[in-house]
Design a protein around this nucleic acid. Structure first.
Lengths: 223, 223
DNA sequence: CCGGTTCGTTACCGACTTGTCACCAGCCTG
DNA sequence: CAGGCTGGTGACAAGTCGGTAACGAACCGG
């Protein structure tokens, strides 16, 4: 998840970037509007945090330019008592705003909310023991071996199994997570999916006995 | 990229300035020849668009003066049936001309051509590995090879792929970025665009296998 | 107006994915 | 032991996905 932060105040810029980096986001920093636009094109961030008070009042221009070329959500930073600017910014396409001063915690909460509202999900990797599941690339790597390609259903199945690593997950829950509340009695689907997944995993010797059957209950991933 | 437009007709001046601004150029406007020369010195534009019919017939003077002090390309605007003036202007150092009336589209094409010919392209480029994408000229150069011309959609597609180089970009996100459809299921557009882009890239041997398919997920650019 | 380019649309093909059925083996219970 | 349950396996059909070709509309530049 990549964020672009634009502010001409170096201290605030560093503070915001620090807070966001700590929260696990990749942060790109810009200090003026030409740099902001250049970095926006080059990095295509998932969200933009923009100070309304850029030198030469060009915060609006940046907002308009970005909103015109992309649907990326934009969060404006404003000083207290600038309601007019705020309204103008929202008209120009900003999606949320934050009044200075603000706490890093508030910033983080708003950023998360905005990302969720925009339907942009993190889609990172999940790991447990020697298995590492990449939800975005739909691959799994076992003990540092070459990544295996997974299908959509296989990825969903492994997602919950890795998350509950070394705990049994009931067939019901697996069915609900992979297929949604569909044919909840349909064990055959699960049987087949597990079968096919095992075949795929056995191509990597280290992954041969990862998937354990707990008879009458469900399945378990042994990491 | 900064352009100086000189015309004594306020309507035409505004129209031309609007078209060029919309295309992303910075535009400086002048209504008469003293102002033109003053602004030329002050702003040092990359290209001058000059009406031949300035009051007191001084369009030629401006042309000569500018051509004498700089190598900047000059485009003259002429009314129909002023061939003599045209020849004189070209002798005085004008590089191209447009006959009024002209469409904004034509103007833009000629301006771009002139800038390219003069070798002062904007150079708003994004790079990743051996590929270098020029967002303004709509060209891509691979491993230092000759630039390939791209269409608008191809450029937008490559922009996001280059920005996320060697990471998978989901079909959803590509669709959203190129067409603006949020979550629209229209994959056929993407299929076609990728197909056409691959054909174009294969004309450069170094670019033959840049675009990788990640089945069920999206595409990836291997730099 | 003409020729070229760009782009959306439809259609078809092959490969992969997924749902479904059939069958088998093991286990438990009456 | 019969019958029912569970889980594993193979096979097949339907659906989906990606690549390719071809047509045509819209647009642009001359």
């Amino acid at each position: 998840m990549k964020l672009l932060v634009v502010d001409d105040d170096p201290d605030l810029l560093a503070l915001v970037a620090f807070a966001l980096t700590n929260a696990g986001y990749a942060v790109v920093k810009a200090a003026d509007s030409p740099e902001a636009l250049r970095l926006f094109d080059a990095e295509l961030p998932n969200l933009v945090i923009l100070d309304i008070n850029l030198p030469s009042g060009s915060g609006f221009d940046v907002c308009r330019a970005i909103h015109g070329k992309s649907e990326v959500p934009i969060m404006m930073l404003t000083a207290r008592g600038e309601e007019e600017d705020l309204v103008r910014a929202l008209e120009l396409g900003a999606d949320d705003y934050l009044t200075k001063p603000f706490s890093p915690r508030t910033l983080l909460a708003r950023v998360k909310a905005l990302l969720r509202r925009a339907g942009i999900e993190a889609g990172d990797t999940v790991a447990a023991g020697k298995v590492s599941l990449d939800l975005e690339a739909h691959t799994i790597a076992i003990a540092g071996g070459a990544p295996l390609r997974l299908t959509r259903l296989e990825t969903r199945l492994l997602q919950i199994l890795v998350a509950q690593a070394s705990h049994v997950v009931s067939a019901e829950r697996l069915l609900a997570h992979v297929w949604g509340h569909r044919g909840s009695g349909d064990r055959q689907l699960l049987k087949q999916l597990v079968h096919r997944l095992r075949q795929k995993l056995e191509r990597d010797p280290a992954g041969a006995d990862l998937l354990h059957t707990e008879s009458g209950i469900g399945y378990r991933l042994k990491p």
